[in-house]
Write a protein that binds this DNA or RNA. Structure first.
Length: 515
RNA sequence: GGGCCCGUAGUUCAGUUGGUUAGAACGCGCCGCUCAUAACGGUGUUGUCGUCGGUUCGAGUCCGGCCGGGCCUACCA
């Protein structure tokens, strides 16, 4: 069980030039759900998140804040750690690109690429705008000026290049052989057409600033931030020690979850870098979408960012986790609204699952002497409901495999629906007057279904899942997926008095939009 | 400009390789139940499946035009 098949999943490392917001929370949450699922399913999981700390922007931001770059990074990186704590994220490691282990990994990878002739020294030339601190291509220019209107000058500077142009065909072949490498399909199409349109060599060093990983044997250059950043995924499992236990176990990663804005870096550059270094590319890259807030695009100018801390405070942690993953098909854009949030919480959590538990357990409490009911002869209806609940695990595995987190939740709730229907049809409150043995069987079947739901809901709602299982007096070592098969709680096991797990929201939605 | 995707009930969306009366959830109306967090169950409700035309015995499901919307089109990350 603990030494099951490895599963290595990563969030992107978050750029410290930005404060944590809903987008970061969402990505990390999705990874956490998959990581927890796999762990409960007996897989050996390595779940990585962290911060990306180099680059010109960070150097500038630090200067603006009047602190040294590393000190600046320390502060912001800590905010991301804090977010992970508050979200109850189960990451196994938190990497920072300023760590020594990472710098060593980057330099080792670089050297390997140099040795193979995949990186060469050339010069980067283009129209540079001092005001924008950016290069523009000929096509970008408008009337000889930058698109921003700033004046530009022709600049050439020495730069190392990665021979990306040589990898187009091999990338296409790789995508072809691994149809599941990029998800969802729409992103895959984009990436394929991007690669088909032809790749140019990639400038992978900079001389215009110093806050980065020094290029080996050429201290005037620091590495291009994406080469640096992407390498974190192998740093964290021990690279360059490819003989290490962790590297051998976890590389290649099973899944890099990313926002849709950084698909190209993960699905094109990263596998190219790795293949060029003769290292195996990751097995999957999945891009999720963006949130809008009450129908509006989130932007700094509108000041309508969604603060994850506000959501948690207003609605509860597990409620927030549930909403973000249930409301929108994973991979698509979605809209956050107070109304939708309250609706999900009340309809799915309070009315459906929460109330199911409450009505079952309160009857058990009153009519079964507060002990687990004795299950007698099963009818076809009993068998059908139990079979439906027991078929969840394989169905959820399939959904997880495809990153269909919303589908997994929909399936869970379909069983909760079925249980609500079953209890109405069986009417144990009527059986109480006519057939106590049958009543116990009905309640016993329901308790078993709730047990299974409680176990399976843990990846998304760890606390709520624990509360559900606490109320069924399930010991902590009987809460993984393997325990599903071990069957109902022994009849006669004392059960505590039921307590509501998911309260309804009766009041008006609370204001969470941050100005 | 080139490429990809989408437009289905009030809302959010499902709709395998074209095939009987187009589905789900939420919302809403009515009925039932009373164990339960005024929750649950039953039942009903509305759709020219964006639009025009084509292929076909038959198209939401394939082809083309048009309208509307979104995304990608590399070196800030």
């Amino acid at each position: 069980m603990p030494d099951g098949r490895p599963f290595y999943i990563t969030t992107p490392i978050y750029y410290v030039n930005d404060k944590p917001h809903i987008g970061h929370a969402y990505t990390t949450l999705a990874c956490d759900v998959m990581a927890r699922f796999m762990r409960l399913d007996g897989r050996r999981v390595h779940f990585l998140t962290g911060t990306d700390e180099h680059g010109q922007k960070v150097e500038k931001s630090a200067a603006a804040a009047g602190v040294a770059p590393l000190e600046f990074c320390d502060r912001v990186s800590e905010q991301f750690r804090e977010l992970a704590r508050v979200l109850n994220i189960s990451n196994d490691d938190f990497i920072r690109t300023t760590e020594q282990r990472h710098i060593a990994a980057c330099q080792a990878l670089w050297q390997r690429l140099i040795d193979r002739g995949e990186i060469y020294l050339g010069s980067y030339a283009g129209w540079y705008s001092v005001r924008d601190e950016a290069f523009y291509t000929e096509a970008d220019l408008i009337d000889g000026n930058a698109p921003t209107g700033a004046p530009v000058e022709w600049v050439e500077e020495p730069s190392y290049f990665f021979r990306l142009s040589a990898w187009g065909d091999r990338l296409l072949e790789f995508y072809d052989r691994n149809p599941g490498f990029i998800g969802p399909d729409s992103r895959r199409n984009e990436v394929v057409s991007f690669v088909k349109s032809g790749l140019r060599d990639l400038s992978v060093s900079r001389t215009s600033f110093t806050w980065g990983v020094p290029v080996p044997n050429d201290p005037a250059h620091v590495m291009y931030v994406w080469l640096d950043a992407l390498t974190n995924y192998i740093t964290a499992v021990g690279y360059p020690d490819v003989d290490s236990e962790s590297y051998k176990t976890f590389w290649p990663a099973n899944l890099h979850v990313v926002g849709k804005d950084i698909v190209r870096f993960h699905a094109v550059y990263w596998p190219a870098f790795l293949m060029a270094a003769e290292l195996p590319p990751p097995q999957g890259v999945f891009a999720h979408g963006w949130w809008t807030n009450e129908g509006q695009k989130i932007s700094k100018s509108l000041g309508n960012a969604i603060d994850p801390y506000d959501l948690i405070e207003s609605y509860g942690l597990d409620q927030t986790r549930y909403f973000l993953l249930r409301e929108v098909p994973f991979g698509q854009d979605g809209d956050f609204s107070q109304k939708a949030m309250v609706n999900r919480i009340n309809a799915d959590l309070a009315n459906n699952l929460g109330n199911l538990m409450q009505r079952v357990l309160s009857q058990v409490q009153k009519n079964c002497a507060a002990t687990a009911p004795t299950i007698g002869v099963l009818t076809a209806e009993d068998e059908a409901l139990l079979a439906q609940a027991r078929s969840l695990l394989p169905a959820l595995r399939a959904a997880m495999e495809k990153c269909e987190l919303h589908q997994a939740l929909a399936q869970l709730w379909a069983v909760s629906d079925a249980a609500n229907l079953y209890i109405d049809q069986q009417a144990p409150w009527t059986l109480k007057k006519t057939d106590l043995v049958r009543m116990a069987t009905v309640l016993g079947v329901l308790v078993e279904v709730i047990r299974i739901l409680g176990i399976l809901v843990q990846p998304v709602m760890p606390d709520a899942g624990a509360k559900i299982l606490d109320q069924l007096a399930i010991s902590v070592d009987a809460r993984d997926f393997a325990a599903i098969a071990s069957g109902p709680i022994a009849a006669g096991t004392p059960l505590p008095a039921p307590q509501g797990v998911f309260p309804r929201i009766e009041t008006k939605p609370i204001e969470t939009a941050k100005a």
